[in-house]
């Protein structure tokens, strides 16, 4: 079993993060933007796990647990916001929410 180079793991995390970033930039549907943020958080967690495996320390996995907790809290609040926006504006277009009505 040959060892895995650290570059491979970090580059994989970079590619996934960049795909999520591209999706945030090109989408107008607000649910897709939330999904893309999940992809980006997951890529950041992958980078932490790779670094933790390189130095055989548990800190990387602890950071991944924190990222997981934050992603769960963020997606619940984000989905509640999306429901409110859909009820108020009757659309999922993120550009429609650029005006604050008082």
């Amino acid at each position: 079993m040959k060892p895995i180079p650290v570059e491979a793991g970090l580059i994989l995390a970079g590619i996934l993060f960049m795909l999520g970033l591209i999706s945030v930039l090109i989408r107008r549907n607000i649910i897709f933007m939330l999904i893309s943020v999940e992809i980006m958080l997951n890529a950041a967690g992958l980078a932490f796990i790779t670094a933790g495996a390189r130095w055989v320390q548990a800190d990387g996995q602890v950071m991944f647990i924190f990222i997981l907790t934050m992603a769960a809290a963020e997606v619940s609040v984000g989905l509640a916001l999306i429901l409110q926006i859909y009820h108020q504006l009757k659309t999922l277009d993120s550009d429609a929410a650029n005006k604050m009505h008082g």
Binding site: P3, P5, I11, M18, I22, L25, R54
Partner: peptide
């Protein structure tokens, strides 16, 4: 956005592959 992000990704890959980072050998935590 795709072109600009790909430029950034290329830079990131260049920086990471230039560094001497070692390798992972069956750590199992």
């Amino acid at each position: 956005p795709v072109i600009l992000s790909l430029i950034l990704l290329a830079e990131l890959v260049y920086i990471i592959s230039g560094a001497d980072t070692g390798s992972i050998e069956q750590p199992l935590l």
